[in-house]
Write a protein that binds this DNA or RNA. Structure first.
Lengths: 344, 344
DNA sequence: AATGACGCTGTGAGCGTTCACAGTAGAGAA
DNA sequence: TTCTCTACTGTGAACGCTCACAGCGTCATT
């Protein structure tokens, strides 16, 4: 005997909490209590309600709930990168996938917002205030005022990577960029390299400055001189890597290793080196950063530093939900791992 | 003189339609009418309300609205690919970006849902029914029952690529795969190639079968024999391309061209050919499909078929919104374009 | 036996909108 | 003038839920 009434044309009105209450022989209040943890509900009532929910196929109307609770039970994933990077950089996919999954486990949908243009930025900001419980922010450039704005508006917020110049007020989760760079440079040194250059990330991004700092500190640690000619800032793109390597080769033809701030740039570096007739890793060792799919796509496959994206996304969600729950902002730094392949 | 009251600690209660009404000296009803198109509102009232909205910083509470209208004014982007592909394939990013932007123009947020596992699939289905106005579906494998389920549940739906075996009931937007394959094979033929092999996409995806059909038809058109040994199905991955090329070289060492069903696979094909000592395009021409970033990353750069992703995403959104608005399902096929680079 | 505490339950109010309806005023037609 | 029509406006009701409160038994304590 089917309780769910048939439905010839189109969708029918979905069951409400009233329907469940009637079906279970209890009141709305009791059903609501079951829905929200089941405290102060007798075992008998609990059973009756649960089975009524199953029979009716009831799902809560989140709009009605949000209307009264003031929460929206949804979270925005806000991306303020220039769009070329989003298209090119596989790290975003991994991060996005991870956050979606972590949120799904809490039954919280992820609203994707991309702010390439100024108009989009404004629209997103307007939407976020009041329609979303919190924001996962991905925007590496420190010039971006969005973190400050959101923080000021009192919106719970977790950034991916330490936002430069925001003081210590906003939560973030980041890989240990400095440590990762150190591991790579140590490794290059240990394998006999003595003229180690670097192509850094943009110096207005935390990854750019931190990895460069790690490079510099490790050079000192190894007793190698710091030579400005060996440092070229890139832009995290493949083409940027190609250009940086050309410059490097011109300035210092005698280099025997390059630590590159991202795998994508490292791919570009490899291209330039190949064109210049340098063998990798024979003549020059190349170390990347990220361990993205690009590392495996490169020839030779890249020795690189793995960013723990799965843990990063999981932590971002954990910290954000904690903050929505009233806890204080937190900073989380996760260890990286050196991945040895063929390029160094 | 600031009307927005100050707010020392945390967020304050946002202004409601009542506040606006009072501020403008009209009733809720009038404000509501202004919010919904401004019909049947006098110019004076319109002005008063608009300026009141500006002064109070009012934004509508979408939950309250949704509660009564029954609409949610949001759309799900549902991805049911195995996750490796999502991580590797840059096409998704372009599509996602395009859909987000197109929806944003209508002030409709995009809920990202990824169904890698069965549990995720169920959760997403439960969420979608009742919480979302429509679905943009990206799942190329026809075995996937999700399109049928959604369609049956009466959820407005647009697929990316023709869903195999769904009859003609569900809307879709696709590139002209057949035409694109035809252009590529014609081009290879025109440049003197006579033993043209192909690495197709998976044969349970529309792209796989359509492009293969185009290849086959054009061979016939050119008077070339169809040789089963020259056809190897791939899996859209780079590694799959490598394997397919090995098989091809083994079966038919005399081939002088390969039409590959995706750029990513073409990258793999190039790797294998290079290892085997074949020169591209000297010995063997290679044609890709997609014109993704991978085409530019390949060496030599890929001659390929451009999928008009920006138009695809825009059309998907247009068709979906039309369908939500009550129109009938529609199929849209968009032209592709041959992009000549270095590999053929 | 009376009191308090506690666990469970039902009820009314209200969240911020939209919608249908009724009412008003002004313009044009008879 | 009177009537009708139209354009505009305000008012209750409702959407489906949670929350605070009050009621009611039951048990332990005084």
């Amino acid at each position: 005997m089917s309780r769910t009434e048939h439905n010839g044309t189109g969708r029918r009105r979905p069951p409400t909490i009233h329907d469940v209450a009637r079906e279970a022989g209890v009141s709305r209040g009791t059903v609501s209590r079951v829905l929200n943890g089941g405290h102060h509900v007798s075992p008998a009532a609990l059973d009756a309600v649960r089975s009524a929910i199953r029979r009716t196929g009831y799902t809560v109307n989140r709009h009605a709930r949000s209307l009264i609770t003031g929460r929206s039970d949804s979270v925005a994933f806000l991306l303020t990168e220039p769009q070329e990077r989003f298209f090119e950089d596989p790290n975003f996919n991994v991060l996005l996938r991870g956050c979606t999954a972590a949120l799904a486990a809490h039954d919280i949908p992820l609203l994707l917002m991309i702010a390439g243009t100024e108009a989009e930025r404004r629209r997103n900001m307007r939407y976020i205030a009041g329609h979303v419980d919190g924001v996962l922010l991905v925007s590496s450039h420190s010039g971006d005022p969005v973190a400050a704005q959101l923080h000021e508006a009192g919106v719970p917020l977790v950034a991916c990577g330490k936002p430069l110049g925001q003081g210590s007020k906003v939560s973030y989760v980041a890989a240990d960029d400095l440590g990762g760079a150190r591991d790579m440079v140590r490794y290059l040194y240990a394998s006999g390299r003595r003229r180690i250059a670097t192509v850094s990330g943009p110096l207005d991004t935390p990854g750019g400055v931190e990895r460069l700092a790690g490079y510099r500190a490790t050079l000192a640690e190894c007793g190698l001189p710091y030579d400005e000619a060996l440092v070229v800032p890139g832009d995290y793109s493949r083409a940027g890597g190609e250009a940086a390597a050309s410059l490097l080769l011109e300035r210092a033809p005698d280099i025997d290793a390059v630590f590159v701030g991202s795998d994508l740039m490292a791919q570009g570096v490899l291209t330039t080196l190949e064109r210049a007739g340098r063998r990798v890793p024979g003549d020059i060792a190349v170390g990347g950063f990220d361990d993205s799919p690009a590392a495996l796509a490169a020839r030779p496959e890249l020795t690189t530093v793995r960013q723990p994206w799965d843990r990063i996304s999981a932590e971002m969600v954990r910290v954000l939900l904690a903050q929505i729950g009233g806890e204080d902002p937190a900073a989380v730094i996760l260890p990286t791992e050196l991945v040895r392949r063929d390029s160094a």
